[in-house]
Computed example of a mutant assay.
Amino acid sequence: MEIVEKLNALSAKLQSIQATIQTEEATKNALVMPFIQSVLGYDVFDPHEVVPEFTCDVGTKKGEKIDYAILKNDEVQILIECKKLGETLNVNHASQLFRYFHVTTARISILTNGRHYKFFTDLDAVNKMDEKPFLELDLLDLDEHVIPELAKLTKTAFDLESIINSAEELKYISQIKKQLANEFTLPSEALVKLICARVYDGIVTQKVREQFTALTRKAMVQFLNDQINDRLKNALHGTSPALLAPAAAHTPAQAPTLAPSEASGDADGDHAVETTLEELEGFHIVRAIVRKVIDVKRVHYRDTQSYFGILVDDNNRRRICRLHFNRSQKYIGLMDEHRVEKRHPINGLDDIYAFTTALRNAAKQYTEESI
């Protein structure tokens, strides 16, 4: 899909220049205008399509300006308000969007800092911009589910009715996903109470509640591991090389135990380590890659506060790689010939496949060593 290539190009540009952008104007010129031009397909130099510093008097507010207005058939369709790269985006930053929204023909507004884009419409009340976005885009963490909806906003495929019809579902799916992510990190009291009521017959004391908080989180992570294993197993039976390299399948029962409480111990002495879903999926990708040269039952992980290590025989001296996913720029760390780690930047999980040969070579040396 062409829009994916353009987003990837803009994402790469952002990574290379983000340290040099210090002002809102620089954010607009280097990131927002290319987003409007390249990704959305509107000519930023044609005032019939894009009007910078768009002015519309609102009540007692005279001469107030919005950063960009995107037009179609001479009617305002999209309003864009920009903030400096790195600045946190919230509804307090959108006061001008709120005021302009109900006095123009726009049904879509965007609040952005060049990296994050929040898309709003008027689901809650007609001609009044919602306080919560129906769609969010992060250029440094692209979500494949966002792409088809973003495509509806492009010049060649602009479909306002379709956007509005799907906006409510998108809005609630986004909020539900955030709640689920929170539950995986630290199960809420309400969820723990629900689980206890369904699986525990005794009196729920404070001690029992604390115990089930840990057990619930552990069970959810293991459940997710099972789902990932099933997906990898199905992919291995398929023909798509984009998902996994061809290899013999294995059953989920062969997978090592992946509970964070059992895997977080490390020579570095880190405590209270939070193993993320992305790290777990990265582990499964690496394991699927190296299974061609080593028994996957020998492949384990140890999570620390600094990195996520993938090892052979649960031995720190037998490292396959390290995943550094604790910052906006992600890296995969591989050992060079001098056994010194070299970090390689990656944009997402799929980029791990680019290191297939290196990962297999790393795993293979421990197979030969153990013979």
Rank of each mutant, 00 (worst) to 15 (best):
K364Q: 07
E64I: 03
E161R: 00
G41R: 12
N92Q: 08
I17H: 04
L215V: 12
A245N: 10
L334D: 15
G86P: 06
V299K: 02
K364A: 06
N90V: 05
R317F: 08
V4K: 03
P241Q: 05
Y200G: 09
L323K: 07
T213N: 00
V192E: 01
V103A: 04
I228Y: 02
P345S: 07
G282H: 07
V50N: 03
F120W: 03
E368V: 05
V44T: 10
T55A: 06
K178T: 10
K171L: 14
H116L: 11
L153C: 14
E5H: 10
E161Y: 01
T27F: 07
I371D: 00
N234P: 04
V192S: 05
K218F: 07
Q96Y: 03
K297A: 14
L150C: 06
N182C: 04
Y172R: 14
C196V: 07
S11E: 10
D138N: 05
T88Q: 13
L153K: 09
F54A: 00
R231S: 14
N73M: 07
N316I: 14
L139H: 01
D313F: 06
N73W: 05
F223I: 01
R343F: 12
I173R: 08
I346H: 03
I173M: 00
H338T: 11
R99P: 00
L123T: 11
E278C: 09
L79M: 00
F35M: 00
T185S: 11
L359C: 03
T27N: 04
P246Y: 08
A362Y: 01
S11G: 10
L258N: 03
Q211E: 13
A9P: 02
A358H: 12
S16M: 14
T121G: 02
A255H: 11
I163L: 12
E169H: 12
D143F: 06
P241R: 01
R360G: 04
V273R: 13
F120S: 00
T251H: 11
D226W: 13
T23A: 02
P241L: 00
G269L: 03
D314Y: 03
R322T: 14
P52S: 15
I346T: 02
I285S: 00
M335S: 15
I17A: 09
T257H: 12
Y172G: 10
A288K: 03
S264W: 08
M33H: 04
L243D: 02
E279R: 01
P241E: 01
K61W: 10
